[in-house]
Amino acid sequence: MSDGRPIRVLLAKPGLDGHDRGVRLVLRALRDAGMEVIYTGLRATPEQIVKAAIDEDVEAIGLSSLSGAHQTHFARIASLLAEKEMSDVLLFCGGIIPQDDAAALKRAGFQGIFAPGTPLEEIVSFLRARLRPALHEGKKR
């Protein structure tokens, strides 16, 4: 799709982790970049996250975890999306994700994995390049 409508993104924190500085920074940066962003708040279950993605009709889901629970929850969310035939939703994530796990998450369908300290612009560019490639190329020029 190359229309000019805003990118719709769901940001979510699965598991019990309360570190939300990162996800809230991303939330603000994406909104400042003109995207429509829905945030689940803390302690969302995989089922709640997938339901929110359907209800809100988002094009991308960003997950955040700094507690190590990504191993359990992130893959579960990817497989729930596959069950609902929503594998076209762009998945990305951030937090403290060891390199080994990052490789496994890539295989599970996560196309962007961002460590703490990633420049916000990098995440904005990533979403634009994947979801609005024509416009993104135009902006680059």
Binding site: G15, L16, D17, G18, S67, G68, A69, Q71, T72, H73
Partner: peptide, 22 residues
């Protein structure tokens, strides 16, 4: 760990993936 901090036993479904992590 987070389940202990929030009040879930290690065998509670809410604790899945978090037991002993942080």
């Amino acid at each position: 760990d987070l389940p202990t901090q929030i009040g879930y036993d290690a065998d509670d479904p809410e604790a899945a993936g978090e037991v002993g992590r942080v």
